[in-house]
């Protein structure tokens, strides 16, 4: 019944976390260096696909933020849309971005509306592409279990 590979299932657990952390690092790195929301989102999708192959698509779907592929996509789209509003409030064009530097005791924290946009892209890419990939994997699973449901 269960034809999954044991080694993959075991390795997937730490790898999933590592890939997600790496994708977050790539997302934040995009502030000044190559990287950003899209590429980070793609890495996150690869983590989801890994989990889908190792533990099945239902389990992988449940591991996505809020337990479904559509939610990250929706929230991401809304975040990206909202990120353009602060510029609008200052009387400039939509999507005119703002940046602030917050100084803590010894650390400087750089915040910007671009980061919000990037997080939105990250979530949207993760949600949308993970949805596609899991749907395709599910077709494969159905065939292995003997024809379409």
């Amino acid at each position: 019944m269960n034809s999954r590979i044991v080694i993959l299932a075991v390795v997937a657990r730490p790898l999933y976390l590592v890939i997600l952390l790496a994708s977050l690092w790539v997302l934040l790195r995009g502030h000044n260096e190559p990287g950003g929301g899209f590429i980070g989102g793609l890495m996150a999708v690869s983590a989801t696909i890994l989990w889908g192959v190792a533990h099945g698509t239902t389990a992988a779907r449940a591991r996505l933020p809020l337990g479904d592929a559509v939610w990250p996509a929706v929230i991401g789209l809304l975040l990206a849309a909202i990120s353009g509003v602060p510029g609008l409030l200052d009387g400039e064009a939509y999507l005119t971005h703002r940046a602030w530097t917050l100084a803590f005791v010894s650390v400087e924290l750089k915040l910007s509306t671009v980061l919000l946009f990037d997080i939105g892209v990250y979530l949207a890419v993760w949600g949308a592409l993970a949805g596609y990939a899991l749907a395709l994997l599910a077709v494969d699973e159905q065939e292995q279990e003997g024809g379409p449901a």
Partner: peptide
Amino acid sequence: TVVVAFGG
């Protein structure tokens, strides 16, 4: 003519 340039 209404024009908006994104990002200013």
